[in-house]
Structures are given as C-alpha cells and as structure tokens.
C-alpha cells in the first residue's frame, strides 16, 4: 500500500495503517528533534508526541501532500516549546543527580565525527529559526522544496533565508571554530 493509501486508512481510524508510516519517518523526526534539543531522551519524547499529534489531526491533513514535511513541522514546533519548558530542566537535573559518566572524549572519536560535531556546535550559535533551516536542508538533506513545505514558505524564501544563515554560519566558524575553519579551507585548496 502506498503512503497516501496508508494515510487515508489511518485518517479513518485504522491504527495499523499508522504504524508503517511511523516506522518510515521516525528516524527523520527523531533526528530533527535531537538536533534542536541536543538530548536523546527529549528527542524521543518529542518524536512520540509528534506522531500522536499527527494521528489526532490526520483528518485535517491534506492527503495529497507528502507526510514527512508536515511531521517535521510538528516536531520542530514541539521541540521549540520543549526548549522553553521546565521538564527539560528536570531531565538535566535527573542526569546530574544520578552522577552519570561523562561520555567519550572528542579525541576518542573519529576526525569525521569531530568535524561534524564542530559544525553542529557552530550551528547552535545561530538563532532558532536559522538553526531549523540549516538542520532541515543540510543535516536531514531535505530538498529546497521539502524545506519550504516544512516551514510553510515559498522556495524563494527558503533560498534567501539559507543564504543569510550561511553567511552568519561562516562568520561564526571563522571566529569561534578556527581549527574547523582551517580544516575547511584546507579541503578547498
């Protein structure tokens, strides 16, 4: 059964049709939430909430459109709310009181990971809306059209917002991540 048929069945209350759709999109939704929140527990909760909310509002969803941008849009909204919430703070405290071990040092990770992690840190210095567009386009590898669907703007707006975000990102990388910038310039030359 194709995606639109599954959506139609799910919208009529067939939960078994919803399961393959969740399976198909759970990774993208979880990863976007993780990028925006930086915490796997928060990301998992947000991803679950995303699929439950989508299920509850499926009747209102335009079934001719692809599902993924709509799900990512819900996930981004929930993640933004969660960043403002006290639940997130309590989760951090819980970890602290449990005295959990510090994860592996950056040196122990591969060079590729280090580079990607530096990039992620640099993106985190951008505003939330700039972060979101960068994550969607470059980290989740969405096309400009899909990014526009998620953000509910036209493609031209995505391009201009991306252009501004990239300018800011380049400055941040140069100023705050000089090693990363050098590595990047090395690749260019």
């Amino acid at each position: 059964m194709d995606e639109s048929a599954l959506i139609r069945h799910a919208a009529n209350g067939d939960a078994s049709a919803w399961e393959p759709l969740v399976l198909a999109h759970q990774q993208a939704v979880f990863r976007l939430a993780y990028l925006l929140l930086g915490d796997p527990d928060d990301a998992e909760d947000t991803a679950q909430e995303t699929f439950l909310r989508a299920w509850n509002h499926l009747k209102r969803f335009d079934q001719t459109r692809p599902l993924r941008p709509w799900l990512l849009s819900i996930a981004a909204n929930l993640a933004r709310n969660r960043r403002r919430s006290a639940g997130r703070y309590l989760a951090a405290l819980t970890r602290a009181f449990r005295n959990e071990p510090i994860p592996a040092t950056v040196e122990e990770k591969s060079a590729q990971y280090m580079e990607a992690n530096d990039l992620w840190k640099a993106v985190q210095s951008l505003s939330m809306s700039d972060q979101q567009i960068v994550y969607l386009r470059y980290f989740l590898d969405l096309s400009v059209a899909e990014t526009a669907e998620v953000l509910q703007v036209v493609e031209g707006t995505v391009k201009s917002r991306l252009s501004r975000a990239l300018e800011k990102l380049r400055v941040i990388i140069k100023q705050e991540f000089p090693v990363f910038a050098e590595r990047r310039e090395g690749h260019e030359s």
Binding site: W18, Y113, A116, L119, W120
Partner: peptide, 28 residues
C-alpha cells in the same frame, strides 16, 4: 560551502533511533 556542509553533516554521530513506532502504537 553548501557541498561541504552536506558532506560534513552526514558524519554527525546521532544516537540510535529508539523504537518510537512501538511506543506510539502502545499509547494509541
């Protein structure tokens, strides 16, 4: 720069995606 971003971002070490479908279906 865009090409580099796409390549570098692919190297990010995400946590394993948990069984969201299972949890969602249990709750549903």
């Amino acid at each position: 720069f865009e090409k580099q971003l796409l390549t570098i971002a692919k190297g990010l070490d995400y946590p394993r995606t948990p069984d969201i479908a299972g949890s969602v279906m249990t709750r549903l």
